[in-house]
Amino acid sequence: MRMLPNGEKRKNPEALLRQIKREHRGYFKIFIGAAPGVGKTYTMLRECNDLLQQGLDVVIGLIETHGRRGTEAQIGALPVLPMRQISYKGRAFAEMDLEGILQRRPAYVIIDELAHTNVPGSKNQKRYEDVLEILEAGIHVMSAMNIQHLESLNDTVEQLTGVKVRERVPDWILTEANEVQLIDTPPEKLRERLKQGLIYKPEKVEQSLKNFFRTGNLNALRELALRELADDVDERLEHYKWEHGIEGMVGASEKILVCVHYGQNAERLIRRGWRIASRLKCELYILNVPTKPVHEFDEATRKKLREIEQLAKDLGAEFHIEALGGRKPADAIIQFVERTGITQIVLGQSARSRWEEIVKGSIINKILSETRFVDVLIVADGVDHRE
């Protein structure tokens, strides 16, 4: 950090560019909740109606009321922009009209269901990518999503609730937001609203109460949401300290490495590594050490490798493939660790039997014995590997 003649610290050039970019783009606010029905869209609409009454140009680009009368009533006087019709496989689908919003150029636009995947034929694959374009045009955006749609929480949510969340957004979308507001409703009140038919239609109530809306599930999701928002506050504080040259940044010297193969555990390992790197505010590396050249892979393995690389990209991690070149896998990992200055390694539980590890040697033990000042985290896969 350079010093100015008057003794003040000069801002980091990257921080200055970041500030300039922020000043020229739209304001982005996300309303986030632990579950459907907590009141995210309701609150967002109410706040935007207040802005409308103040004389600001506010429109609805897309809203999902899910048939909830209370939410529909909150639309009030807000103008709703027409949807765009897209034809796909002989059917017509209604999607948000990105070009229409950019041409209309309102001061504020409401764009609900941030994690939505657009119909093929749309300009962008995901709705959050549409939002980023709108923000770059200088338009303020209000949006909403549930905590279970964050990419790094996908495995955790599935383990807690038994529900596989298909629609997801990368975690960094929260750091793109200028403001994140948690809409918190106690589980007991949420279940009562469900019983009253205020969230789903009557035929879905009983099933929902026994599955996703179990009290234990809702408590766990609520805790995840509260923790995520607490982490978001910490993240914003660290960015503020960095941009203003305040000393004492934590985690700057840490580097996390996740070693993955092509099994179902790969995504879970990557998300676990991202959670660690996010909390430490440090770099994340994803490493694959193939046992044969990539061009010899079958199509299924190539597809899996592309999925792993895309997930790493979505989470802002560096993805690397380290060819063996006559080395053992453990040696390739160790040399990568030494070359990049890794301080923590995340590995999946070995699928080898105890006898195989005795005969062939344990990769984990070799890494531990041949690296210094490197912590190793072993993530269990839930399968019994004992003979």
Rank of each mutant, 00 (worst) to 15 (best):
Y128L: 01
Y128R: 01
Y128I: 03
E129H: 11
E129F: 03
V131K: 02
V131Q: 05
V131F: 06
L132C: 04
E133S: 10
E133N: 11
E133R: 09
E133G: 02
E133L: 11
I134E: 01
L135C: 09
E136P: 00
A137N: 11
G138L: 11
G138H: 11
I139Q: 00
I139F: 01
H140R: 10
V141A: 07
V141L: 06
M142H: 14
S143L: 03
S143R: 07
A144L: 07
M145Q: 06
N146I: 10
I147H: 04
Q148R: 02
H149R: 15
H149C: 09
L150W: 00
L150T: 02
E151Y: 10
S152E: 08
S152L: 06
L153R: 01
L153Y: 09
N154A: 15
N154W: 12
D155H: 15
V157K: 07
V157W: 05
V157R: 04
V157I: 14
V157N: 03
V157E: 04
V157A: 06
V157Q: 06
E158A: 15
E158T: 13
Q159M: 13
Q159N: 11
Q159G: 07
L160N: 00
L160C: 00
L160M: 06
L160D: 00
T161R: 02
T161E: 02
G162S: 10
G162P: 02
G162A: 11
K164R: 15
K164G: 03
K164D: 10
V165P: 00
V165M: 12
V165A: 03
V165W: 06
E167A: 14
E167I: 08
E167V: 08
R168A: 00
P170F: 05
D171A: 13
D171Q: 13
W172H: 14
L174W: 11
E176M: 14
